[in-house]
Design a protein around this nucleic acid. Structure first.
Lengths: 163, 163
DNA sequence: CCCACTGTTTCGTGGCCGTGAACCGGGAGC
DNA sequence: GCTCCCGGTTCACGGCCACGAAACAGTGGG
């Protein structure tokens, strides 16, 4: 399930960007005279060509190891309203904290709007719009976290890894 | 400031182990016919010889980058009121030292205002505002340390890495 | 005496959250 | 094809209140 993509630079720069966007672990094979490479995250590595197959394999395995660790990563919400995801964290205001609780709980799966409303406002929604507005604010607070809050039309919302 | 050690393998295996033990970021230059290398942690990288100086430099720089954002270290408060965080340190006045003690103790988690007040002024707060003022002063003394004292509204404060 | 430390007050600001309204894409129905 | 509405997104505004900054004064130690 966990695969590492291998791209050649500088020829396949576009593919590299796509892989970064999707968060796929990736190894760059850098052409002999191309400038050195700078990985943007821990799921990225590079090697200078020409390289022995064994060396490439070793780097791929390292990336696989990191990716496996990354898969186990789930967000955590402490009762003092700290939401953590890996090294990243925010302090959430009360409403957002209640709202996100079921989403963290069922990370990666859809949570219905009704349930979200119930979680955020146990006494009932104050306004037909409140949920959407609050979800928007929550989305903004998650920026840069590596987490995305996506809506599934007429079904609900999913909290998942991704930008 | 932050340094990266460079060792040659397999000749300097002993030095490598010492560096690992001390948590120093390290780059291994692996001899042409030696087997590929497997880094044991994120502060370790390797490159196959012969390698261009620019390539070695690039890898050193990424290691420096990782070391700078290394979040595994924790601040320490000695009983002579010296607060250390990595290479950085300050001498804290008595009140600040008492105040920060529980925050260092529970680094990265929220400490309630009540508890902070109790820690800083065991005989009771002299004024309903004293805590906030003192927290502001503490914040200023932490500038440039790589530590942040952030408030979690209506809950308390958290001492964490970050600017 | 001087300076760091601390108490006290005042005032400002920024976070949080409800509310109304504009806007937009997609699908159902005509 | 056209229109209309549904579901969702975004903006701006305002009230409330917790928190923060500045400024000044008193105090004690070197």
């Amino acid at each position: 399930m966990t695969d590492v993509a291998v791209v050649r630079l500088p020829d396949e720069t576009r593919q590299l960007e796509e892989l970064r966007r999707r968060g796929v672990p990736r190894l760059a094979l850098v052409a002999p005279h191309a400038p050195p490479f700078t990985p943007v995250d821990l799921l990225e590595d590079w090697v200078r060509l020409p390289a022995a197959p064994a060396d490439v394999r070793a780097r791929v395995l390292t990336l696989v190891g990191r990716a496996v660790q990354d898969l186990h990563r789930r967000p955590e919400l402490s009762d003092d309203r700290l939401l953590r995801y890996g090294r990243w964290w925010v302090a959430l205001p009360p409403t957002d904290a209640r709202l996100i609780a079921p989403l963290v709980d069922r990370f990666g799966t859809v949570v219905g709007r009704g349930e979200l409303a119930k979680a955020g406002w146990p006494d009932g929604l104050p306004n037909r719009n409140s949920l959407d507005v609050q979800l928007g604010r929550l989305r903004r607070r998650l920026e840069g976290s590596g987490l995305t809050l996506r809506t599934v039309r007429s079904r609900g919302c999913v909290l998942a890894p991704g930008t």
